[in-house]
Design a protein around this nucleic acid. Structure first.
Lengths: 318, 318
DNA sequence: CTGTTAGCGCCTTCAT
DNA sequence: ATGAAGGCGCTAACAG
């Protein structure tokens, strides 16, 4: 009968019959029942993309990239926004667990990964090292944030900066840990380089206060490297509140290149991350994993976008 | 046997047996199979939340609100980011259609709603009137954007503004049409009020150019009302490029109160929309719809947040 | 080459 | 108060 619709008709049913069946199906508005198929096959051909609400600007691009390669393989993707303030405690996985074949977990806190022990998972922009009791590295696709931070440092060094302040995000995510380490290393490797650091929550007010601490030091940094673009907006405010010009008196850099970067005045020098590629590579890795393969780790380079928030340090302060 | 797990054991199985079964289930790591249950019941207890990628700032809050009331009724929610630039043409509904019980469609373009003729749907912040061939109003929960625009107008009028320019988003969404109409009406109702308007795409550059057109007019408006916060950022840029101070020379207002509003300098006067409530009310309406009821339309008021981007017009220009 | 059948795991009905 | 059985719609294996 309707095994035509499965696409298995090749060499089974006569083309004419096949067409007739298809026509009838179309006419009656027939739709294959997903639940029955899932029950029979034992797989849903659906993967769950977990994103943190807070870091959402990317989300659309990551989804698009993942959805594209998923579609090419007959998979669908649904998104789940992980509550920002939630540890692994309140796992909302009542339903999904049985309803999906795999998980793409983007930018999660270090220890939530342990939630999905029994479902294939690829970490995106997240700590590949397993945390908690049974530490075991997991497949991952990362942004090469270290390379991005080195590019930022090199750019500032070229301009003549040596005293560099880091306004960090006090968020327990791999990406921020990696950003901080890479920056500290790069600045300290600079001849005469000095690295100072404060941190705050991921909102404008906290970032302003954190940046202010750095700007009030006697040996005030000539450049503020911020963990992301929103923090950079806070740094702008701190500078302005002290009558300091950006970039005349302090250079400021961001990270991520979200829309905010060009909304600010002056426009922000920042690092653009290939979010869509992250989603696509992640889905590719998950597909490999589901086929029993062992996806090799990938790291996607960012791109330094130089705008108007960086300039040579004022004379006498460098 | 395991009908204990269905919670139907009350008055059927002895408590001791029930407990024994539950223990065994726990020990063996038993999980009910979702696909089988779905097949049997014919419902998935899952609803799809469709959000536009572009207007995503809200998304997290809408989801949270919807998920909360969904969970209270044993429903789960998955998110689907609708491609911004897509009309109804490339419907990606191959899979979801059969896998869900209902749809919450947020901030969609006017004509995409016709896609889901055969699935219960509640429109969020979207045109409740059916478009296309078979126009039929659909259940909806809206933001009372008209009220918000009236509040903006009243605030500006109180400050002494009469010549008000509207920097509109040229996006075919109910919310923007409604914002525009409400503003035009409110301004024209003002004694001596004059309303002028330009529009552009939803990005900073386009908004800057659009706002610039207004600022270059001989009878330059003393206040620029923007369709959303991002557009307001563009208006700031246009003003600054012309040596005009905000709010000294031009007042600027936004809409939505996203994070950007406080990242800008000066901080933006805007209208805060209750996104979480939108999600919650929407889910409640959908639940009613699924039970065969007829949810009554709701409209959720916003709140004018007065910050530093509005001030009385400069003397001689009002 | 084509049609028939068993059974995926669950819930509901009916028989004990 | 408990156990047995049918069937949801699909696909893969098998019989014709």
């Amino acid at each position: 009968m309707s095994l035509v619709l499965g696409g298995k008709s090749a060499g089974r049913v006569s083309p004419a019959t096949a067409q007739a069946v298809r026509d009838a199906a179309e006419r009656l508005g027939y739709r294959p029942n997903l639940a029955a198929r899932t029950l029979r096959l034992g797989s849903t051909r659906t993967v769950l993309l977990i994103v943190p609400t807070l870091t959402a600007p990317f989300f659309g691009d990551v989804y698009r990239g993942a959805a594209r390669v998923a579609a090419e393989h007959g998979f669908g993707i649904v998104a789940y926004p992980w509550p920002d303030d939630a540890g692994p405690a309140d796992s909302p996985f009542a339903a999904p667990h049985e309803a999906i074949d795999g998980i793409l977990a983007s930018s999660l806190a270090a220890d939530v990964a342990s939630e999905f022990r029994d479902t294939p998972v690829v970490m995106l922009d997240s700590d590949p090292e397993g945390h908690g009791s049974a530490a075991r590295p997991m497949p991952a696709v990362l942004f090469d944030v270290a390379d991005g931070m080195r590019a930022v440092t090199a750019h500032l060094a070229d301009l003549g900066h040596r005293r560099i302040g880091h306004v960090a995000a006090s968020i327990d995510q791999w990406t921020f840990h990696a950003r901080g380490e890479a920056l500290a290393t790069a600045v300290r490797a600079l001849p005469g380089g000095s690295y100072t650091r404060t941190s705050g929550a991921l909102d404008v007010g906290s970032a302003r206060d954190a940046a202010g601490l750095l700007l009030d030091r006697p040996d005030r940094p000539t450049a503020l490297v911020c963990d992301d673009d929103l923090i950079a907006a806070g740094a702008y405010k701190a500078a302005r509140a002290r009558g300091l010009d950006v970039p005349g008196d302090v250079s400021v850099t961001g990270f991520d290149d979200v829309q905010l970067a060009t909304a600010l005045e002056p426009e922000l020098t920042t690092v653009r991350l290939p979010a869509e590629a992250l989603g696509a590579e992640g889905m590719t890795a998950l597909l490999t994993l589901l086929k029993g393969g062992d996806p090799r780790p990938r790291s996607l380079p960012g791109e330094l976008i130089i705008r108007a928030s960086t300039a040579p340090p004022a004379r006498g302060s460098g």
